[in-house]
């Protein structure tokens, strides 16, 4: 088991493009519904929300995270930049919680547009999209500063 994990990890490391390369995926930003009243979030808060530690912010606002599709490059980039994990690791993490626990993984948007749509429709929703796609329907609450 462990050997396979290690092998996978090596494969993933080899597959991941280095930051110096011409970006195939854009920088992402975390967006929220402006009406939800969510201010700027910290990286820890984003991590805790997206990895199921809690879904309610300190201000009492509920926050429902929303992932990009499972095979999207943005999703991989998001988790890499947020917690420095591969998608496989993130999936393994969730697998344990889903299998024996009660905590649920974030919902999945079919695309960034879908994510924008859902954020604009449901104020408690938090999602990450390409930075370039941000428009007036949403507000950016967190972004990775390089």
């Amino acid at each position: 088991m462990k050997a396979i994990h290690t092998l996978l990890l090596i494969l993933l490391i080899l597959l991941i493009p280095t930051p110096g390369w011409p970006a195939t995926t854009e920088d992402w930003v975390l967006i929220a519904n402006p009406k939800a009243g969510i201010g700027r979030l910290t990286q820890d808060e984003v991590t805790n929300i997206f990895l199921g530690r809690y879904r309610r912010l300190a201000s009492g606002v509920t926050a429902e995270p929303l992932d990009q599709p499972a095979d999207s490059a943005l999703r991989a980039r998001f988790y890499r930049q947020l917690v420095d994990k591969s998608l496989a690791e993130i999936n393994a993490y969730w697998a344990r919680l889903v299998f024996s626990g009660k905590t649920r993984p974030p919902g999945v948007a079919s695309s960034s547009e879908d994510a924008m749509q859902r954020v604009s429709l449901h104020p408690e929703t938090l999602a990450y999209i390409e930075k370039s796609r941000v428009d007036a329907r949403v507000v950016v609450v967190f972004e990775i500063v390089e």
Binding site: L51, G52, R53, Y54, Y93, R96, L97, S100, G101, K102, T103
Partner: peptide, 14 residues
């Protein structure tokens, strides 16, 4: 540690 991180009593109990 996963169970604790996620505060998942069920997993912890498991």
């Amino acid at each position: 540690s996963v169970a604790t991180f996620a505060n998942d009593e069920q997993l912890a109990s498991e």
